[in-house]
Nucleic acid binder design. Structure first.
Ligand SMILES: [Mn+2]
Length: 475
DNA sequence: TGCTAACTTAGAT
DNA sequence: TAAGTTAGCA
């Protein structure tokens, strides 16, 4: 998705440049997008599970091209999915697997390319090539978008190269789109140049640029629909822009949009329906606020302090539930292995199999599962692991969740809490990785583990997003 | 008339 | 993922 129509909307504030403009400087690369493009050359092989690494050719070629212009690439890889993005992600993977099934049946080229997914194994192979060729890289703990913006804002890189309009929503100072592999020409979007952006009639888009720069621009992206939250049906970029131009705050813009699109449709003036609408408005505002936080404070890797930090300085300390939505912290040693060394699968936080096999002297890592269950339920037999069973943590939390709020089971909706200390001491590397624990347990064992682990179910963001949309449509 | 949403194509080789 | 096209809606 990205932000639908954004690049077209602000095209007037971008310019055609040559990549040699950045000669002698480093540039952050959206590695996944290059891998994705590379995969087009071997979509069939990948879909059929045949051995190939031809998808590396394109990224390696692009790296060589940059270097031929004295531009030094820093490849930025995607990390784990943020909970709020699960909804978008499910839509995408559903489309991909549908394409894969068609591909198997009908052998159509298009279905093969539509089924392309960039896997951790593919990232691993590119990472090894990068080490061989002394090419810099960073693995984002979560969103590569946020990580690239961090690198640019802190002067590690002069610009970010991507095809994803989200970088503008993240307020990337300089973003390069449509880099031609052959010519090196590209389209540069400098964030501050947006103050000159005009619409088709030539009038300024972002009057009082400072207010747009500091928040309204990102708010506009959120209201028009982003990866973390769908928009009010019928609201796109233009409408969001208009509402924010008039009302100058997310809160007032939302109220106005709700009045316009919902209030009028609620044919009744009956008090119950009225209360329901007010409720929906305030819930929508809350969801938008969560998105604002992600765009501002998403968890990234700081190569200087060698630690996970929020994209921007966090003023006040956040509630743990808000904190986890930005990408849960993990044990510092794991953060380094993941982001700096690039030897962990971002989702499972397990060593890549290729790394495990290699003779390279990697630090010994303990078995996460046994450490976790030793802590919460000592008598569990971890030898009896069975991949197909649902994790005990999820089972129990979901049970509680459905009992209390009737929310459907949702992967990634589960967070342990109390303190980080508990998590680390229990060997849990991140709340999002509970699904890695597949252990069949007796009912008493489950209950015991549940009680002693002090787990609770946080609101399920993707469900909130879905529920939100449903209710809108229902009106 | 303007806008959104839905559909199509390109992408690499 | 963007971009181009088109149909439907206010
Ligand atoms: Mn993105």
């Amino acid at each position: 998705m990205g932000i639908d129509g954004l690049l077209t909307f602000v095209r007037s504030a971008s310019s055609e440049v040559h990549i040699s403009k950045f000669a002698g400087q480093r540039v952050a690369i959206d590695a996944s997008s290059w891998l994705h493009r590379g995969a087009f050359s071997c979509a069939r092989e990948l879909a059929l599970g045949q051995e190939t690494d031809r998808y590396l050719r394109f990224p390696l070629r692009m790296i060589a091209m940059l270097r031929s212009h004295c531009v030094e690439p820093v490849l930025v890889f995607d990390g784990a999915k943020l909970p709020m993005k699960v909804r978008t992600d499910r839509l995408r993977s559903a489309a991909r697997s549908a394409a894969l099934q068609r591909a198997h049946r009908e052998q159509r080229d298009k279905d093969f390319t539509d089924s392309i997914t960039v896997t951790p194994a593919m990232a691993d192979r590119l990472l090894r090539k990068l080490r061989e060729s002394d090419t810099a890289f960073v693995v984002a703990p979560y969103e590569a978008d946020a990580q690239m913006v961090f690198l640019v804002e802190h002067g590690h890189c002069a610009a970010a190269i991507t095809e994803d309009s989200d970088l503008l929503a993240f307020r990337c100072p300089r973003t390069i789109y449509k880099l031609s592999p052959e010519t090196g020409y590209c389209r540069l979007h400098s964030f501050d140049d947006l103050c000159h952006a005009t619409d088709s009639s030539g009038s300024l888009l972002f009057d009082d640029w400072q207010s747009w720069k500091t928040g309204l621009f990102t708010d506009m992206c959120i209201l028009s629909g982003c990866d973390y939250l769908p928009s009010i049906p019928g609201v796109g970029l233009k409408t969001a822009h208009a509402a924010l131009s008039t009302h100058r705050s997310m809160q007032r813009a939302i109220s106005a949009l709700h009045d316009k699109f919902i209030w009028s449709k609620a044919q009744s003036a009956d008090p119950a329906g009225r209360a329901e609408l007010l409720q929906l408005t305030s819930e929508h505002l809350e969801l938008c606020t969560m998105c604002q936080q992600i765009f501002k404070y998403a968890t990234v890797w700081d190569p200087v302090s060698a630690a996970l930090v929020p994209l921007h300085q966090l003023g006040t300390s956040l509630d743990i539930r808000d904190r986890d939505r930005l990408g849960p912290l993990m044990a510092p040693s794991d953060a380094k292995l993941l982001c700096e060394d690039g030897v962990l699968d971002p989702t499972s936080l397990q060593l890549y199999p290729t790394v495990e096999q290699s003779t390279a002297s990697m630090p010994k890592r303990e078995d996460v599962r046994s450490r976790f269950f030793d802590a919460v339920c000592p008598r569990v037999n971890t030898a009896a692991c069975e991949p197909s069973s649902i994790s005990i943590v999820q089972q129990n939390v979901v049970r509680r969740e459905t009992a209390e709020s009737a929310l459907p089971l949702n992967e990634g909706a589960v967070a342990p809490c109390e303190t980080d200390t508990f998590l680390y001491s229990a060997g849990v590397r991140s709340p999002m990785h509970f699904k890695a624990f597949h252990v069949p347990l007796s009912d008493e064992a489950k209950t015991a583990a549940f009680e002693s682990a002090h787990l609770f179910a946080i609101d399920s963001p993707p469900c909130l997003g879905d529920a939100f949309l449903q209710r809108f449509r229902g009106i």
